[in-house]
Amino acid sequence: MISPRYFIALLLALVLLSPLGIDLFLPTLPYIASGLQTPVSHIQLTIPLFLLVMGIGQLVSGPLVDNYGRKPIALFGLGLYLLGSALAALAINWPIFLTARIIQGMAVCCTAVVAFSGVRDRLEGDDAARAYSFLNGSLNIVPALAPLLGGVLAHYWGWRAPFGFLFLYGLLLMIIVYKWLPETRPDSTHRSAIFPARTYASIIKQPAFLAFTFSIASALGMVLTYVSLAPTVLMAQDALSPFSFSVIFGVNGLWIMAVSALANRIIPKCGRPFCLLLGALSMLIAGVILFSEPYLLAPAILAHWLSYMIPVAISVAGLAFIMGPATSYALSPFQHNAGVASALLGFIQMAGGAGGSLVVLLLPLSPYVALAIMMLLGGMLATIAWLTSLKIKGSLTSLN
């Protein structure tokens, strides 16, 4: 049997499919738009659309994971990822590219549910929280390196090259999963309908599940808004080069990873409620700073990239403290429906985060105000999650 360390690493490789599908081509947005003869705003909208499809698709992939096992659905998702990546690399117009991105979103909804169900299958309580924190923290090596890698690939081989890379990564991972991913679905797992409306309804009726899940969704919405607006703010408004943008974007990813490692150490010492409170305060403080800056700072200072990135750094630090504890609290009671519960969490997380991000992106708001709104919303919902955790502290183990 594969060791726990290698098992988590394999789950991480599956989870990486999602951020790679977003961050790898960020520096190439203008080139894709030019190559497909479409406005760059169309290409930008594929980022939240990708996550929206991923979230909705999990409502179906979750029951499939419980019914047919983790490994078969992982392989099916990887097959879809190969198809979507190849189609994006070969796209000759906007409709084909859009279709490719939708297929990629459908693919990662399968692999994400497999990864989070796998953690729930083998770990509980603080151990599960630390595993989720590790997964979410390690994911930020992608924002640290992917834009730079995507920029290099596009520089030498054109904007299609990053999607060729995604195809090769998916192919390699499919071989690894086929040979080494163990089937972790418990024998006691309850089979369900393709769309188990009653099971979903019973889970949604639990206020604690909603409190933790909405805190995750709002945090993701904040990050998605930042990712969507960062190229415009840093490259257009602040006049940074694509290389400088990739470096700054990457350093922020490494920062999240470092804070996530710190959160992993704090969880067993101070507890999950403390981490939720710390995350909520960080997001609230960041939102207040970013919202106030246009009114308090001189135009020359406001035009510097640090005025945007310092509040972002504070806010994403809060994200690192929220994700692991909130995810473990949300999924802990559902040992016999881990796939379905993970799917519902993923749907609310992705659809809610993407939906909130789409709303603020479409409103006539400045990039600073739009992102500040998402930070403040995330901080308020994380505060509700913290208050909820105080009420159930010490009771989750008995529900497993």
Rank of each mutant, 00 (worst) to 15 (best):
132 Y>M: 15
231 P>E: 09
86 A>G: 11
284 L>P: 06
199 T>P: 04
166 L>N: 10
394 G>F: 12
200 Y>E: 08
213 T>H: 11
87 L>F: 01
300 A>C: 03
18 S>V: 10
108 V>K: 00
130 R>T: 07
17 L>C: 13
87 L>A: 13
391 K>A: 14
146 A>Q: 01
288 V>G: 03
352 G>K: 08
318 G>E: 01
114 V>S: 00
27 P>W: 13
255 W>V: 08
321 F>Y: 10
338 A>M: 12
9 A>F: 14
23 D>L: 06
276 L>Y: 07
3 S>H: 10
225 T>W: 05
156 Y>E: 10
99 T>A: 15
194 I>H: 12
142 V>K: 03
185 R>G: 00
271 G>Q: 01
95 P>V: 03
166 L>F: 06
95 P>Y: 02
159 W>N: 06
138 S>G: 15
96 I>H: 02
63 P>H: 05
103 I>C: 01
272 R>W: 09
313 A>I: 07
302 L>D: 06
189 T>V: 12
333 P>I: 08
330 A>Y: 02
298 A>M: 12
50 F>P: 09
51 L>E: 09
204 I>V: 14
53 V>W: 02
231 P>Q: 11
124 E>S: 14
10 L>S: 11
65 V>Y: 01
332 S>F: 02
171 L>H: 05
56 I>L: 15
102 I>M: 05
334 F>K: 00
277 L>S: 13
332 S>I: 00
118 G>F: 00
11 L>M: 11
102 I>C: 10
91 A>I: 06
217 A>F: 13
186 P>H: 05
177 V>C: 05
187 D>H: 11
265 R>G: 15
291 F>N: 04
340 V>T: 12
83 L>S: 12
82 L>V: 13
42 H>I: 12
112 A>E: 01
226 Y>A: 13
367 P>A: 01
145 L>P: 03
100 A>E: 01
282 S>F: 13
40 V>F: 04
303 A>M: 11
60 V>K: 08
149 L>I: 15
308 Y>A: 08
103 I>V: 15
292 S>C: 09
17 L>F: 07
181 L>V: 08
304 H>W: 12
114 V>R: 00
169 Y>K: 05
306 L>V: 11
230 A>D: 08
65 V>D: 01
161 A>N: 07
250 G>Q: 02
99 T>E: 02
228 S>D: 08
370 A>K: 10
337 N>M: 14
380 M>A: 14
353 G>E: 07
362 L>A: 15
268 P>K: 10
192 S>V: 15
99 T>Q: 02
164 G>I: 05
169 Y>R: 07
68 Y>C: 07
158 G>R: 04
244 S>P: 00
193 A>Q: 14
265 R>T: 06
137 G>D: 08
106 M>D: 00
121 D>G: 04
59 L>I: 06
142 V>Q: 04
215 S>Y: 08
281 L>N: 14
332 S>Q: 15
215 S>Q: 07
